[in-house]
Design a protein around this nucleic acid. Structure first.
Length: 833
DNA sequence: GCAAGGTC
């Protein structure tokens, strides 16, 4: 039996389809799907991995008490002892009681262990245990093995790891490597009839990347986390990609802070081409505005002089009318970065984009979403794709026009790789087929695809120069004369600005000018899309990881908002590392690693040599960092306090801070003077941000609250503030009391201690009736009663509109709805396997 | 309780 190992399930299926004479049989080994077929009289089976199936980690059996423990070196530590270089003082490890060189006992050590962690041996541990089990089971019976993972460095490593698993159970089966760059019949058949050898050097290059990332990441993350320990779960991370990315954001913020705005003045005049003598008010079709030819006056005096010069004039002369046509080329095919840049501009974060793209891919609506390529391969039948999506009425006219051409021509980007085709739609979808966010992304991808097959747009720009009292004004207009791709791709489009028709020498009405003082703006913060593009430019991360890295920076509270601003903590982390361990804050480390990896791949150096050099460098920088731990600790503590600052305590004047409850992890506001001062304020659920302005009603601090899927709102932190008083609403009669022959009101109110809103019976002590309520939105009572349980129906109006519901949590109607739900979400069902 | 890289 011939065993074919691919990087992912999808590839295993496609290869089986393309190689088998007959349709392959879908089977399972344990829980892993595999595909069996016959070729040239031999039994074949393909199995898909899930990316990396092994994961490097510090050897648990040799060095640590238990996996993942951050204590340090265990027991006798012999293996570590052997790997520590002579330059580092060797602790005299003894059984059960390790000591430092100075004789300090190391049991339970933390920070002191870090210099040794730099040199700790690394092992590859199983990560996908189920898949490994299935793989080994097949490998046992295999006569030969073909590694058919992706054709790149990580793919080679994934394949080498898989092979090492196979070798544990089958030491002799011959192994070969299939190299393909597209799932087409000729490509795959060609790859399998020209099998090559595994490239061990390339796999080693990938493995050195893993080692270096782990060592630097673990050592610096533990350092930052332990130097100012803030409780379990409060990790201050650092890494080869995330820290330079954070540094980019901080650098931009520093530029903004250093920026000194300059005043300038802008003069804008109002004109009307219909009224020759300046008698109309200037809001007819002939009205237009034009800016002074000096776009920015640096001196107020010069601006005033220009204003004085036009003062009193009622007409202007058209000095020149220039028209110029320019073509706007159709956009190039989408790769991952370009897709994320486009969705970011549409308000969809890169991380969310990739989650949705993954589901669209899995459901068969779009092609593989992780690509660098921006050139459609010749093997892709563009006309067939156009036909496939032409069933969507919104695309039909464009599809028809494209198909009517004798040949279809597509735009092409600069990046041409053979990994996968650029992202294109693979099936028709309409707004009825997909949930809104999914369709939004599908629509963008489908329209972009059609745009890449469309003509350039032609825009006619008009520039009109006007003269008033010796001053020149310039009006500009843009009109789309040939829509081309813009007919199908309206994204990122500026509105047309039309000008009324004018001729040289013509007089138009001048209805006065305004002079506005403005200030130059600091460089803009990065949007998530822009940051991803910048990361790509600098070689930070890959198409598959950049969005996740940015999300990680949000999760550890190094950054906030979009456009992205760094937190005080983020700034402090970059500052501390930049001072003492500058290698981790720049993109040069990645660039250099790439060079070393190329050398390993070419056989010019070894994985061991490269990793050891990197360990020595880290050892050096950690050595510079450790003596300044007090300084770093204070800087981080100050930053954390500044990030948590909400306002001043009304009782003792110290700082009120955002805190997390130890027990429930929920957020509240507490005084930094605790335990002397016990002032606390409850917080509603949702993301909390500090706001500078105090409450206009009571003078207490305010916070900005963003609850899940709601618009942010600014609220006073004091529940007693009049702005926080919600009227109690009588929503109806209590059904429990009614059953007991009594009549009591159900009242909706907010608990001032917990801020939770609920409906309680006035007769609660006796009947114990209480219903939960959504925490946000305006609540109104209705006359209606729930058909299932008799509870009064209420309406909650949020930004998404009114929503009528039965508040009874145990209402029998709820169960029925739950049963209905899975059927309603049919859209995520996987397209035929 | 660490990273980054694959993929779900």
């Amino acid at each position: 039996m011939k065993l074919v190992v691919t990087e992912k399930h999808d590839a295993a299926q496609k290869i089986a389809d393309l190689l088998g004479a007959k349709k392959p049989k879908a089977d399972k080994v344990f829980n892993t799907p595999v595909y069996r077929f016959e070729k040239d009289g031999e039994e074949w089976v393909t199995i898909g991995l899930r990316g990396h199936i092994l994961e490097p980690d510090f050897a648990p059996s040799l060095v640590y008490k238990k996996k993942g423990g951050w204590q340090g070196v265990d027991a006798d530590g012999q293996t570590l002892q052997a790997s520590i270089p002579d330059s580092l003082p060797k602790p005299p490890f003894k059984k059960k009681k390790p000591f430092t060189a100075d004789g300090v006992e190391l049991k339970g050590w933390k920070m002191e262990a870090l210099p040794y962690l730099v040199y700790a041996p690394i092992e590859k541990l199983p990560k996908e245990k189920d898949i490994i089990r299935s793989l080994k089971n097949l490998a046992k019976k295999a006569d030969s093995i073909v590694i058919a993972t992706d054709f790149d460095r990580e793919g080679e490593l994934i394949g080498a790891d898989a092979l090492s698993c196979c070798r544990e159970v089958n030491a002799t089966a011959p192994v070969s490597r299939a190299r393909y760059s597209a799932f087409t019949k000729p490509e795959i058949q060609g790859a399998f009839s020209n099998l090559v050898a595994m490239d061990d050097n390339l796999a080693s290059a990938g493995a050195s990347r893993q080692d270096i990332d782990l060592i630097w990441g673990a050592v610096l993350t533990r350092y930052l986390t332990l130097v100012k320990f803030a409780g379990y779960g409060n990790v201050r991370s650092s890494g080869r990609v995330q820290t330079p990315t954070l540094a980019l954001i901080c650098q931009r913020e520093r530029e903004r802070m250093a920026f000194v705005p300059e005043d300038y003045w802008v003069i804008s005049g109002q004109f009307d081409a219909d009224a020759r003598e300046g008698v109309t008010a200037g809001d007819g079709p002939g009205a237009f505005s034009a800016d002074h030819a000096t776009a920015r006056f640096k001196e107020e005096g010069a601006a005033k002089a220009a204003m004085n010069a036009v003062e009193g004039h009622r007409s202007a002369r058209v000095e020149a009318v220039e028209k110029r046509k320019r073509t706007v080329p159709a956009p190039i095919p989408f790769n991952t970065t370009a897709l994320m840049a486009a969705t970011s501009a549409e308000g969809l974060s890169p991380a969310r984009t990739m989650r949705i793209a993954e589901s669209l891919y899995m459901d068969g609506y779009i092609s593989y979403p992780r690509v660098d390529n921006t050139v459609y391969p010749a093997s892709l039948d563009l006309a067939e794709v156009v036909r496939a999506i032409s069933g969507n009425p919104a695309y039909a006219p464009t599809c028809k026009a494209i198909l009517a051409q004798s040949s279809i021509r597509a735009t092409r980007g600069k990046k041409e790789t053979t990994d996968h085709p650029p992202i294109y739609p693979t099936a028709k979808a309409t707004p009825d087929d997909l949930p809104p966010a999914e369709y939004k992304l599908y629509n963008l991808i489908a329209r972009r695809f059609l745009a890449t097959l469309s003509d350039a747009a032609v825009v006619e720009g008009t520039k009109v120069t006007l003269e008033v009292g010796g001053e020149r004004f310039i009006a500009r207009g843009d009109v789309l004369v040939k829509p081309g791709f813009r007919a199908i791709y309206p994204y990122g489009l500026k509105k047309d600005e039309t000008l009324p028709p004018m001729e040289e020498g013509q007089q138009v009405a001048f209805n006065g000018a305004d002079c506005v003082q403005k200030q130059t703006e600091p460089p803009a913060r990065y949007s998530q899309g822009k940051l991803i593009q910048e990361m790509e430019k600098l070689g930070l991360g890959t198409k598959s990881t950049r969005h996740a890295i940015i999300e990680r920076l949000y999760n550890v509270s190094y950054i906030q908002n979009d456009p992205i601003e760094p937190s005080q903590l983020g700034m402090a982390v970059v500052e501390a590392l930049d001072k003492f361990a500058p290698h981790i804050t720049g993109s040069a480390m990645t660039a250099e690693l790439e060079e070393r990896m190329d050398e390993i791949a070419e056989g010019k150096t070894s994985r061991e040599a490269v990793v050891t050099t990197s360990r020595d460098l880290l050892s050096q920088e950690l050595g510079a960092l450790m003596p300044h731990s007090e300084e770093v600790k204070e800087a981080l503590a100050d930053a954390v306090a500044a990030d948590a600052y909400i306002g001043k305590c009304p009782k003792c004047g110290k700082d009120l801070q955002l805190k997390a409850s130890q027990k429930t992890r929920s957020m509240f506001i507490g005084c930094s003077g605790w335990p002397e001062c016990d002032v606390t304020f409850p917080l509603p659920s949702g993301k909390i941000e500090s706001v500078e302005e105090l409450c206009p009603t009571c003078g207490m601090p305010q916070v900005k609250v963003t609850a899940f899927r709601t618009k942010p709102r600014v609220v006073c932190i004091d529940p007693a503030c009049p702005t926080n008083q919600e009227p109690e609403v009588v929503v109806g009669k209590c059904p429990t009391c009614a059953a007991m022959g009594k009549s009591s009101n159900l009242v909706a109110r907010r608990n001032p201690k917990t801020l939770k809103r609920s409906i309680t019976c006035e007769n609660f002590d006796e009947c114990q009736t209480r219903y939960p309520l959504p925490q946000y939105g305006k609540l109104t009572a209705t006359e209606e009663v729930c058909e299932h349980c008799g509870a009064p129906m209420v309406v909650v109006t949020t930004a998404r509109g009114p929503w009528k519901l039965c508040p009874n949590f145990d209402c029998p109607g709820k169960e029925q709805e739950k049963e209905k739900k899975p059927a309603a979400r049919k859209t995520t069902k996987r397209k035929k396997a």
